[in-house]
């Protein structure tokens, strides 16, 4: 499946609930990036394995995740 997860990094507070919610375990909090607010934003580490279930987006308290698929 071709899918795309976009994270509005500067709105992300790095709470990690998306990481917890992802059934494919393909999300993490960035180990290198810091956003404007000083949080480590969430990122997808294996986009190809994404099944576009949007579990991450439905859990996100800050509505920063957009999910698309072919």
């Amino acid at each position: 499946m071709v899918s795309k997860v976009t994270i509005d990094e500067n709105r992300c507070k790095g709470c990690g609930l998306c990481v917890r919610a992802c059934p494919k375990k393909i999300m993490q909090l960035s180990k290198t990036k810091l956003n404007e607010k000083g949080y480590h934003p969430a990122e997808v580490i294996d986009q190809e394995s994404c099944i576009a279930c949007a579990s991450c987006a439905r859990t996100c308290p800050d509505a920063v995740i957009t999910v698309e698929k072919e």
Binding site: K4, A52, A57, A63
Partner: peptide, 15 residues
């Protein structure tokens, strides 16, 4: 691509 999920416009853009 088809949008599966995005922020609703009934929420403002305020963080």
């Amino acid at each position: 691509m088809k949008t599966v999920f995005k922020k609703t416009p009934v929420l403002t853009d305020t963080i």
